[in-house]
């Protein structure tokens, strides 16, 4: 199934997300072919109201220069302006952890980070963890340990989990649970998450 789906995607160049986005968007563009309609929608979404500010940052190793609404969150910048939709919007109030990314190497809630504040700084999202086709040990550990059910919280869980190990907090099950407590999993995959962090810690710490 997985192979079939990606083949379909490649054939017509349209993903589920593009279809959803165009469906929600400009009715005026509905006579356009699907791909062009998606482009029209994206241009529509990029019209900034309000006052703007220019940010120049590094996102997943690539330089990014953007003119953004000064009210925007880092989460919305990543999802709406960089199409880095791995980072999820859960509560949008800093209470669930689904939007966790690394800012200058430290986990932060991107929903409560004003996008303007990333000027001159480095952002790493879930998309920036793997090296080419090689998954990060934490990503592999989440797969190996069934550390998810619906998967919505998973990108945030993995970003926190990486920092849990690199910051030296994966010293005991209790220490891992405490460090990871800012990432809520509604499916309750906590047993698998704990096992994943422990497995990845062994790999990452060599």
């Amino acid at each position: 199934m997985e192979d079939e789906r990606s083949e379909t995607t490649q054939t017509c160049g349209v993903t589920r997300r593009v279809v959803l986005a165009s469906g929600a968007g400009a009715a005026a563009a509905s006579i356009l072919p699907l791909e062009q309609r998606a482009q029209a929608q994206q241009q529509f979404a990029r019209a900034e109201t309000g006052q703007t500010v220019q940010v120049s940052a590094n996102v997943n190793g690539r330089p990014v220069i953007l003119e953004i609404d000064s009210r925007a969150s880092l989460l919305d910048l990543l999802r709406e302006r960089r199409e880095l939709t791995g980072t999820k919007k859960g509560c949008d109030h800093g209470q669930c952890g689904a939007c966790t990314v690394h800012l200058d190497g430290r986990p932060v809630s991107s929903c409560l980070t004003l996008a303007a504040k990333i000027d001159g700084r480095q952002v790493t999202t879930i998309e920036g963890l793997a090296e080419g086709a090689d998954l990060h040990p934490m990503q592999q550990a989440f797969i190996d340990n069934d550390a998810l059910q619906c998967g919505y919280c998973t990108p945030g869980q993995i970003m926190s989990a990486v920092a849990c190990v690199t910051g030296g907090h994966a010293t005991s099950p209790d220490a891992i649970r405490e460090f990871m407590s800012g990432n809520i999993c509604r499916c309750g995959a906590y047993v698998g998450i704990l096992a994943a962090v422990q497995q990845a810690a062994k790999v990452m710490e060599g």
Partner: peptide, 9 residues
């Protein structure tokens, strides 16, 4: 007081 994410902010 807060999650590790919020303490970093």
């Amino acid at each position: 007081a807060a999650s590790q994410q919020l303490r970093n902010m």
